[in-house]
């Protein structure tokens, strides 16, 4: 059971980070495309990764 939990946690972490990058990075990409700038993408990626790591800490690091 615990090995399966590890497997689940592994893919959950991967999924969180992927969706963090996709969502906030996508928003940043859209803002860049709309406003003709080039820093929103980087900011969005960093924000997405940061919030994904925060979420992972909430889910797995707290207890």
């Amino acid at each position: 059971m615990s090995a399966k939990n590890d497997e689940n946690a592994f893919w959950t972490i991967f999924g969180y980070m992927l969706s963090g990058l996709l969502i906030w990075g996508g928003i940043g990409y859209g803002l860049d495309w709309w406003l003709d700038t080039d820093f929103f993408l980087l900011g969005g990626l960093l924000l997405g990764m940061g919030s994904a790591l925060y979420l992972i800490w909430l889910r797995f690091g707290r207890e």
Binding site: W11, G15, Y16, L18, L55, L58
Partner: peptide
């Protein structure tokens, strides 16, 4: 909404949870 998080942090986290459950899970 996962419990035990300060309210402003939900702005960052809720989109991630939704995307994970509805897009990333079937995709991966």
């Amino acid at each position: 909404f996962i419990p035990g998080v300060p309210k402003p942090a939900y702005i960052l986290i809720t989109p991630l949870e939704l995307a994970t459950y509805f897009i990333v899970r079937p995709m991966t």
